[in-house]
């Protein structure tokens, strides 16, 4: 722990120095940590996407996560696209732009994954596509991920990252919560393992459905995990709420998360948990 903090301090100094030196670098090369609000040069963040200042896992795309998470991956359902059910103006254009940047259709990447000799179905929500919100296509991809896992008797690992419902798809976004829950129920009835990893941020309708349904629920350090947004809670209660109310560590202390795991340890832990935590036969 000491070593870890020390490393952060060094990195912090380096960033401060670089910031002064590179003050004219275009905005696209900089990113702000959502936890400690430190401005960071993208080049200094490793593939894990950990903030060198505070250690929190930054919001990274599903493709970037895939790079270090598994040994092999075969993607599902790359051809699904929203039909814009509410005919929401400018929505499809906005979505397509984000999809293109993330190399992904809608807000979740799904497929068959392998770590060593362990095979499982993997879903990774992508916070860079409309905040990982739960659109109809995201809901459909996750549902199919479970249906395929049920058919092939495989465990499911799902990385959640979501601002909640997809506003542009209204009530049909809400319906995804139940559609997915029913697919999880069937998978669970077959005695198969479902493991969730809550990443920053896991909120709203995603927290209120499949994020909290895992047989085992892991979370990344300092990930925001909650149902209602901070602003809504404070407006309702007419008072400030503790800064760490929705930190994964706090949520764990209230009994809703099994274990906090750092990104560099996820691959090994997932393989181990799938081997030990699933069906005993």
């Amino acid at each position: 722990m000491k070593l870890y903090q020390q490393k952060n301090t060094l990195t912090e100094r380096r960033i401060k120095a670089d910031k002064a030196a590179d003050s004219k670098v275009p905005e696209g090369l900089w990113v702000r940590c959502p936890k400690c609000h430190q401005l960071l040069a993208k080049a200094q963040i490793d593939d894990y996407g950990n903030c060198p200042n505070c250690g929190a896992g930054m919001r990274i795309s599903a493709r970037q996560r895939l790079k270090w998470l598994v040994d092999d991956f075969a993607e599902f359902d790359q051809d699904l696209h929203t039909n814009n059910p509410l005919h929401f103006p400018n929505y499809v254009e906005k979505l397509e732009k984000m999809e293109k940047a993330a190399h992904l259709n809608d807000a979740v990447l799904t497929g068959r994954a392998q770590i060593g000799d362990v095979t499982f179905n993997l879903g990774i929500m992508d916070p860079t596509v409309i905040m990982g919100s739960l659109g109809t296509v995201t809901g459909e991809k996750i549902t199919r991920l479970f249906e395929d896992a049920s058919q092939n008797r495989l465990p499911v690992v799902l990385f959640t990252a979501s601002g909640g419902a997809r506003m542009q798809e209204g009530i049909l976004s809400l319906m995804q919560m139940q559609k997915i829950s029913n697919a999880i129920y069937e998978h669970s009835q077959l005695g198969l393992l479902y493991l969730t990893v809550l990443t920053d941020p896991t909120t709203g309708g995603v927290t209120a459905s499949f994020a909290m349904d895992g047989d085992i629920i892991l979370a990344e350090p300092h990930a925001m995990v909650g149902f209602a947004g901070r602003r809504v809670i404070e407006q309702t209660m007419h008072t400030k709420i503790p800064q760490d109310l929705q930190d994964a560590e706090t949520v764990l202390s209230h009994g809703f998360i099994d274990k906090i795991v750092e990104r560099k340890d996820e691959k090994a832990l997932l393989a181990k948990l799938i081997k030990v935590g699933g069906p005993n036969d």
Binding site: M177, Q178, S181, T207, A208, S209, F210, A211, M212, D213, G226, F227, A228, G229, V232, I233, T236, M237, I241, P242, L245, Q246, H254, G255, F256
Partner: peptide, 18 residues
């Protein structure tokens, strides 16, 4: 949407109903 509701697992409670 209150602090206690968060602490008592509002998300988890709804998820269990679904």
């Amino acid at each position: 949407p209150g602090q206690e509701a968060e602490e008592q697992g509002q998300g988890a409670a709804i998820a269990q109903n679904l």
